[in-house]
Design a binder for these strands. Structure first.
Lengths: 213, 213
DNA sequence: CTATTAGTAGACTGATCGGTCTAGTTTTGG
DNA sequence: CCAAAACTAGACCGATCAGTCTACTAATAG
């Protein structure tokens, strides 16, 4: 349900009335979950197909460029989700500190829920694809820009200047993402808890900030 | 040369006097670089062997458990490097803020130097191996504990209580690591620069801190 | 009803995967 | 000098890889 950027993936996780989601969506969702679990290269197309209960022909019909096309589509979908959730969060003028803390808590909850079996999609894809998969790398640049922008909008909403907002957006993203990695490595939400506390403490009021340019 | 934890990998990057490093070390080094570039699953043993100029038999002689054994050894080597560098940094009682900033700068330098073609080993392995490679997952837990401990020692040296030191260690690690991922995704050192500035600003003096337990 | 397009279905392919195995070579130590 | 151990060497294996291709069915539209 994409609670506050959470990274859960597209809202289409539910099969509302027994009806099956379209093949294309099922492929994207299966891809996301499997890649979040074990990485891009380790997940074979056969496994994705099986998880999505789709035949091979459908994959190359919907995604003529194959696996990498699937990755690009997954990145775009998740980006939309995250941006939407962040703008929604900016709308509900809740306390910023609480919001940041909640983001960390949501991520920790997700990790625990999946028994640390899934990780953040962008991070996984970044480290596997950047040097040798140009399409995926380009999609990740776009995603990064969009998500950082949406995060910055949130800070602007709470009274930060655009410059500081962008810096804080980078920082919040980095800290949350890094804490997810540490948490997964150590199988403990300790790092995420600490990250939430710290971000809430230092990024919630437009004063202290960092060096201005 | 492992400047302040940098993540560069073992000190054995040099071939001091024309003499070739032992096969085992060459295998570990080749593994590290290739995995940092493209990930664990994407790198085949054949490629590692070629990069290390070693025959297949040597790999399974030195690492009977094969690729995963290589990963475990690489993790152990890198952990030692990082812990050593951090304890060294703790010894030279330099300004803590400067030190943190320098760590971020060193990482940014490394990313740029490699044209964003290499990423942090632990992060890459964490997201590819945690759910289905028990040996690697265990090695990562140990590595995480050791590195966080060494980082905490650094903070203790600078006057923080052990509790706060550990929290700050987690936070510094998370922020630096996450900033590396963002930087690589966006192919820009922006996130790392901001991370360095912020850590130096908020983690260098034993006062503000977070909620105590 | 028919022609066209969208989508499903899965057999098949050459390449590559990690790992095993046998044989040779080099080093060690008694 | 010689036997055991350490190490190098690479042919070989079944499994699996991403992607192609042909055949078929379902939906659309004129």
């Amino acid at each position: 349900m994409s609670w506050l950027d959470g990274n859960t993936s597209n809202g289409t996780d539910d099969a509302p009335a027994g009806r099956q989601a379209p093949t294309r969506d099922r492929l994207i969702r299966a891809f996301m979950h499997l890649v979040q679990q074990r990485g891009y290269a380790a997940v074979g197309t056969a496994e994705i197909l099986k998880a999505a209960t789709a035949p091979r022909g459908s994959l190359y019909h919907h995604f003529p460029t194959g696996k990498s096309g699937l990755a690009v589509a997954a990145i775009a979908d998740l980006t939309d989700d995250i941006v939407y959730a962040l703008h929604h969060a900016a709308g509900s003028k809740r306390n910023l500190g609480k919001l940041l803390n909640q983001m960390a808590a949501a991520r920790a909850g997700w990790l625990r829920q999946t028994n640390w079996s899934e990780g953040p999609l962008f991070t996984v894809l970044t480290h596997e694809a950047v040097p040798h998969e140009p399409d995926i790398a380009a999609a990740l640049i776009a995603a990064s820009e969009a998500v950082t922008g949406a995060f910055a909008d949130l800070f602007v909403t709470h009274g930060f200047t655009p410059d500081i907002a962008r810096r804080h957006a980078q920082l919040a993203r980095a800290t949350l993402d890094g804490a997810m990695t540490l948490s997964r490595a150590a199988r403990s939400s300790e790092a995420l808890t600490e990250a939430g506390t710290f971000l809430a403490l230092h990024l919630s009021k437009p004063d202290s900030s960092g060096t201005r340019s």
